[in-house]
């Protein structure tokens, strides 16, 4: 298994390298420092979401409700400020909402034992519905004067690096620390690798799973704040989009298997870089949106097929329920 993981990561990295090289040679204006920063900046939010997803996937779960966590609590911040509340109070409310949301997710999955795919599908719907029905007046929540200064989270630069990249970097460091340096992180790997064994060994797996979803929702909320700050509004309609599929792609392509227990922050970064390079190069080439998706899909498919040829799955070692 270990060899296998290493190889998928390598393949994706190779595809990334080939694309990057090709674009650098053939595309004028691709390999400039400015464009490199733009490339990263464009996928920073995707990358942050990928980190949240990675955290859950490593623990053998999946969190479809991330987009709801991205859209609703930050939207609530903007809406509350618009309605005249102070920014700190609004932020606190949003964080509390996110924690509550993560707790609901975690409880459903860890204690009520609802499969994570289904549970988060439904809770995401619930949160998005709540936002639509009770929290927001309009689905694009606009920036207001009370938010003045907060847009620094997503706009401008810190030491010449666009802020959203810095935010992505911070998120990477935090998640890497959580996963690699804390006992909690080790437990997540243990649970993802073999939940039954983890439980038998005495790891309090249920509270850890709950915490995992709380942290994931929190990261999702953070990504939402960065996104809102960078476009000066919160288009909550993003919930209807297929963004979540891109997030899953980043994670799985980077080499974090959906069966859990494998991978880390590096994988997310590689997956993000691959997607970012493709999107950036094709935007420069002015390929239409549908065309971009087609090319993106085919490249991803080729990467996955190559992987299956180099590392064929064995019927004997295939894990049950590993879809």
């Amino acid at each position: 298994m270990k060899r296998f993981r290493f190889n998928q990561q390598e393949i994706v990295f190779a595809v990334f390298a080939v694309l990057f090289l090709a674009f650098s040679i053939f595309l004028r204006g691709f390999l400039t420092p400015e464009n490199m920063l733009t490339l990263l900046q464009n996928v920073a939010v995707l990358g942050i979401l990928g980190l949240a997803m990675a955290l859950v996937v490593i623990g053998r779960g999946i969190d479809i409700s991330l987009i709801a966590a991205l859209a609703v609590p930050p939207g609530l911040v903007l809406q509350m400020v618009q309605n005249g509340h102070s920014l700190p109070a609004s932020l606190l409310t949003a964080v509390l909402l996110t924690i509550a949301f993560g707790l609901v997710n975690g409880w459903l999955i860890a204690y009520a034992e609802v499969p994570s795919l289904f549970a988060t599908l439904a809770t995401g719907l619930l949160l998005a519905g709540l936002g639509q029905a009770a929290l927001f007046q309009l689905d694009v929540v606009q920036w207001s004067d009370g938010m003045q200064g907060f847009e620094r989270l997503g706009q401008g630069t810190i030491l010449g690096v666009p802020t959203s990249i810095v935010m992505f970097a911070i998120a990477c460091v935090v998640v890497a620390f959580l996963l690699r340096q804390t006992r909690w992180g080790a437990y997540i790997y243990a649970i993802g690798d073999n939940p039954y064994a983890a439980r038998v060994t005495g790891i309090p797996s249920r509270p850890i799973i709950v915490l995992q979803y709380v942290v994931a929702a929190q990261i999702g909320c953070f990504a939402g704040l960065v996104m809102a700050a960078s476009v000066n509004s919160m288009p909550t309609r993003v919930f209807n989009s297929t963004l979540i599929y891109d997030v899953i792609l980043v994670v799985v392509l980077g080499g974090i298997g959906l069966s859990g227990g494998r991978g880390g922050v590096l994988n997310v970064i590689i997956g993000t870089l691959l997607i970012g390079t493709m999107l950036n190069g094709m935007t420069i080439m002015d390929i239409s949106y549908a065309g971009q998706n087609l090319v993106k899909g085919v490249v991803l498919l080729l990467a996955v097929i190559t992987d299956s040829f180099l590392n064929p799955r064995n019927e004997e070692t295939a894990q049950q329920g590993d879809i």
Binding site: L294, R313, I323
Partner: peptide, 23 residues
């Protein structure tokens, strides 16, 4: 036959088929 993972594979074909439809 190639034994790819179903989730990721159909996710990718979802994107490919959809963009083909759009085109």
């Amino acid at each position: 036959y190639l034994r790819l993972r179903a989730f990721i594979t159909t996710l990718i074909t979802l994107i490919i088929y959809r963009s083909a439809f759009d085109l």
